[in-house]
Design a binder for these strands. Structure first.
Lengths: 152, 152
DNA sequence: CGGGATTATTTAACACGTTAAGTTTATGCG
DNA sequence: CGCATAAACTTAACGTGTTAAATAATCCCG
């Protein structure tokens, strides 16, 4: 067992920003999982469906950016959602490199039916942690993104 | 397609706590990736190595908890790290259900050599966002964990 | 106009996340 | 003791994350 003097700078995982972001996200998502399980979609599939509901038909790149999902993952997710009849994908006529995705009627209905439950989960979290405190946290995360230079 | 290119209207995903946590984490990790790439380990492997350096020989469950990695993932990661000669895994003599993991000399050397670079990345983030502000953000994330950790 | 650069998306390969089920070892209780 | 139960991993199966490379369509510049 190698033993070294403390001449190296280590920060315990409790003080590590990446790990704390990971843990926080995991804790938040744990609240959503029962609902997602009930409607039979994964967390990522739910994000895709929600963005499609909000945006209407959009191209895959924009969808990927808004749902915070990488292109290759989105390709697979859209394949699944197409097979389960929740999403349509067609080619853009003006630029045939582009694919345009949209909700089917079934997909729209699923989002509409689950939206209230999703909002309830968020309301519970927001209430427990404090509404203003939650908003402030989100603003700080947004500011961190700005500082670190994220694509919009 | 009602697209408003010059609008300040931001998408609701910017107000979603789960997505903002995801984006923030992604932005932070982007700063670490070059360093991880250079030493040839994944983000998760690095977390495992760091925890082992901090804790010395520990059982797999404790390691999983401290590195924020689920059991099945850790099984695979330890297999890889064992094959690359960075960690040792042995059975606990007193409770043979348990596995005990520890750094090899090579693993220890890798962590020691990369620790300063890792700290530099963190220092850069912390300086850019503001040291106190970063600490405050970590405290808020910790508080969120405390709040959500207790189901209802 | 033509052919090399660019852009949008997909495919491929490997690693990890998540849940359920399996295996081995320890523990508790009659 | 002996058997049921629990604990500590591990395996399995499927979905997603990440990077690099391939494919296809558009753009651009001479």
């Amino acid at each position: 067992m190698p033993d070294t003097p403390d001449s190296h700078r280590f920060s315990p995982t409790r003080q590590s920003l990446p790990i704390m972001l990971l843990r926080a996200r995991e804790a938040v998502m744990a609240r959503y999982r029962p609902m997602l399980r009930e409607i039979g979609v994964t967390e990522q599939q739910w994000r895709v469906l929600r963005v499609l509901k909000e945006s209407g038909e959009i191209d895959v790149s924009t969808l990927a950016e808004r749902a915070a999902i990488l292109g290759p993952s989105l390709t697979r997710i859209l394949k699944t959602l197409r097979e389960t009849g929740l999403v349509d994908v067609r080619q853009d006529r003006d630029d045939r490199r582009r694919s345009l995705a949209s909700l089917t009627d079934a997909g729209d209905a699923l989002v509409v039916n689950a939206a209230d439950d999703s909002a309830d989960v968020y309301a519970e979290i927001s209430t427990q942690f404090g509404y203003e405190r939650t908003q402030a946290l989100i603003r700080e995360l947004d500011a961190l993104l700005e500082t670190l230079g994220q694509p919009d």
